[in-house]
Design a protein around this nucleic acid. Sequence first.
DNA 1: CTGTTAGCGCCTTCAG
DNA 2: CTGAAGGCGCTAACAG
Lengths: 341, 341
Amino acid sequence: MNDFSAAQRSRVTMLDVAEHAKVSKASVSRFIGDDRALLSDAIAQRIEQAIAELGYRPNQMARGLKRGRTRLIGMLVADIRNPYSIAVMHGVETACRQHGYSLVVCNTDRDDEQERQHLALLRSYNIEGLIVNTLGHHRDELHELHREMPLVLVDRKVEHLESDMVGLNNPQAIDMALNHLEERGYCDVLLVTEPLDGTSSRIERVSSFKAQIEQRPALRGTHIETGSELTAQLKSFLDTPGPGPKALFCANGIAALASTHALRELKCNLFDDVGLIALDDLDWYPLVGSGITALAQPTTEMGASAFECLLKRLRGDDGAVRTLDFSAQLIVRGSTRGNLR
Amino acid sequence: MNDFSAAQRSRVTMLDVAEHAKVSKASVSRFIGDDRALLSDAIAQRIEQAIAELGYRPNQMARGLKRGRTRLIGMLVADIRNPYSIAVMHGVETACRQHGYSLVVCNTDRDDEQERQHLALLRSYNIEGLIVNTLGHHRDELHELHREMPLVLVDRKVEHLESDMVGLNNPQAIDMALNHLEERGYCDVLLVTEPLDGTSSRIERVSSFKAQIEQRPALRGTHIETGSELTAQLKSFLDTPGPGPKALFCANGIAALASTHALRELKCNLFDDVGLIALDDLDWYPLVGSGITALAQPTTEMGASAFECLLKRLRGDDGAVRTLDFSAQLIVRGSTRGNLR
DNA sequence: CTGTTAGCGCCTTCAG
DNA sequence: CTGAAGGCGCTAACAG
């Protein structure tokens, strides 16, 4: 087996190609780049053949060094095990590839220090743009980066950072959920969210919820956060007599998972004892009890949009900051059938 | 807003630091690298301060270009939406970061052509090592890459490619599953797998299954693949009288998802009509019916091991090819309670 | 159209 | 211990 610690040096370089084809490096460079129009057919063919024979691959690092274009996009993700993030990332990756970019993903595990490090790291690799799906503390670093490259926020805002962002139209989604619950005869709604923790989308959802509940005399609304107390809190919600049929509204997939767990611990009959509607649409929603009604986010599309925002900026667009709000889609399943006993 | 298409050029470079600290670039370079022992305290401090004042970050691209070390690891994933892959990737990423490496992830969406492109791409970025979790067609490319850098296969082998690999001890896992089913009184086991498609781990699981069924007179075993016929095939399995209580054995999380879907379509009473044990342990397993019994893979650990294999090779280890087989862990839930009606 | 000449930012001999 | 000089692989003016 080879000694990789010293390897690399053997790779075929532009000079090799040039010599093999008996042309100058510049011509090879032109062939590689978009300047092929400036080459005679004869020479182009010689180069093409030399490249094929030698198995030459241009070194992106070197190109990047020279041109300042690495074709690398960075993405900062708070929690790589959150299906929502994965889905968005999938959209981003696909769009990247279609445009000849590659994606470097950094998972912060919700840790601020890791966010710092990753930010520094991405910068050191000369990424051309950054997609951020974390809390975005380290405002200074972020600002500095944003001076050097375009930036787009996904699902969460960062205060005092003027950048494009793509996310869900939260008020609209809340409206859809409450309309649906109301239609199905639920009166007493408990919003379950992950701890707010300064996450803008969570905060928005809670405040929209509160505001809209105010406007709907038929509904009563309360809200809690996931955590070790969740089961007890749900029990108390279910046991306390209310104005009528009860339903949970889970603010994302993680909350839905936790809530369903808790309901099972409470020996609830899913979902005859209590209704449930959840943001995000995970593949197991149909399998639980009578199936969980969902408000699906167009995650792939959102990821693609995030990349396209970046691309526009990279192409020189310096227009006003854009905010893209996507609409959720209601997918009705058994958990909001409404015929509660 | 700035013009990013032209930007970059403004970043502070090693020369800036050198001038600011009134030393030579070489000294700054030594400071950055591990040669700090060769610097006087006085000069080191001047440099340190200059770096801080200017907010200097070494350019990894340039370093990589010169030294052939990019601190970049590539990972090729067949399906980024498969929770197993994500879990492994999370392990890899964490290990990478702990050792100062970064991870470039490429998702092939199970497409051979994309695998090709991504392979070429990763090479062009001078990654130092590669983790492969795809079918690994394009043997030539892979061989060529493997001459240049260490390679480790995850969960699947590639014929004629002598490289380290980490995966599950499949025969052992099958043994655990069958033991458990037998203990619980099931006699008629249907293995549900994704289409084999040349995926070595799937093939291994099926052949282990067949071989071990032979050895167990108390069990009857058959197997099918997921696909549009799945529901019909399950129905036929359930309707055909057999030697005794029936159980499904899903060969991975995807198969478990599909099978559970199908069982619901068939109006099965989960899991009183039929038992179920599944490889992988997804977070929703406890939520379905009486809960799905799982054989969990130590995914994080497997990812970390994959990276450590790479690291050893990078550090010069040229010993024999290693194969790391991890053990699954049985997690018993309601789906194999066994008291079938 | 084609080749020559400088570097991009950094590391690494090789002399002081 | 420190600095000067050359080059990693590639691109971008310049000249022909």
